[in-house]
């Protein structure tokens, strides 16, 4: 009778531990979905009256094409680029024509943030200009969904490693530690979606260090068990 009671108590404690571990992840999932839902809601036009066409998001320190489509232009020039730090570079470069598309290969994407460029052409025989914008991020991705997903991955990897360590499960700790090392290197390379500065680099080094330390200590435990 007492054995059954103890067994039930153990099972109940196990269930409680599992709930304690799982519930933060359930909350995080709900939070991420609600965050995505709220960010997708349209609260009317909050932008200024000066409209620009958005080219999308590109990866930092890479080359990509700035483009303009014009079916009846004989030429299109790239006249100016405004950088995220506010610097305006004035130029008057011919864009390369391919059918109705005009492109210019842009490589000066070191600065993170929003860029704006202006093009000028002879649309329907009349000189006209247009402004377009694009964003440069460390990973080439943006959006709240990506940020939330990335934070979720970081928390998951940390949680697996710490749970493995505190439960004395050496293989799980080694795997988690390896994942932390990879995560740290990935963050040094790509930043945290739209952020990449000294703080994210420091966090990356910390992640690599903790991952390596946990892996080594778990490996030592594995040898002790022999």
């Amino acid at each position: 009778m007492q054995t059954i009671h103890l067994k039930n108590k153990k099972e109940e404690r196990g269930r409680l531990i599992i709930m304690k571990v799982i519930s933060p992840f359930i909350l995080l999932f709900l939070f991420s979905f609600s965050f995505s839902f709220i960010s997708s809601l349209n609260f009317g036009d909050t932008t200024s009256s000066f409209s620009t066409t958005d080219l999308g998001t590109f990866k930092q320190n890479t080359c990509f094409d700035l483009y303009q489509t014009c079916d009846d232009c004989s030429y299109v020039n790239l006249t100016a680029i405004k950088y995220p730090n506010g610097t305006i570079e004035t130029m008057n470069l011919d864009m390369i024509k391919t059918n109705q598309d005009f492109t210019y290969n842009f490589c000066n994407s070191t600065l993170l943030g929003d860029y704006t460029y202006t093009v000028a052409g002879d649309k329907r025989g009349v000189y006209s200009i247009e402004t377009m914008s694009f964003e440069v991020t460390p990973s080439g991705k943006d959006g709240n969904e990506n940020i939330v997903f990335f934070i979720f991955i970081i928390l998951l990897i940390y949680a697996i490693t710490f749970l493995g360590l505190f439960n004395g499960n050496a293989p799980v700790t080694i795997l988690g530690g390896m994942a932390m090392v990879f995560l740290g290197v990935y963050m040094i390379n790509n930043g945290v979606i739209i952020y990449q500065d000294t703080l994210t680099n420091y966090f990356s080094y910390l992640t690599i260090g903790i991952g390596a330390l946990f892996s080594l200590s778990a490996g030592y435990d594995l040898y002790q068990d022999l």
Binding site: P171, I174, F182, N189
Partner: peptide
């Protein structure tokens, strides 16, 4: 567990090496 660690670790080793090389090429 050890076999799983080796399997996963060896599979991901080239990816880690590539990422490290990429990070070292980073000017920051």
């Amino acid at each position: 567990g050890g076999f799983i660690v080796i399997l996963v670790g060896v599979t991901l080793a080239p990816t880690v090496a590539n990422e490290v090389a990429g990070a070292q090429a980073n000017t920051n």
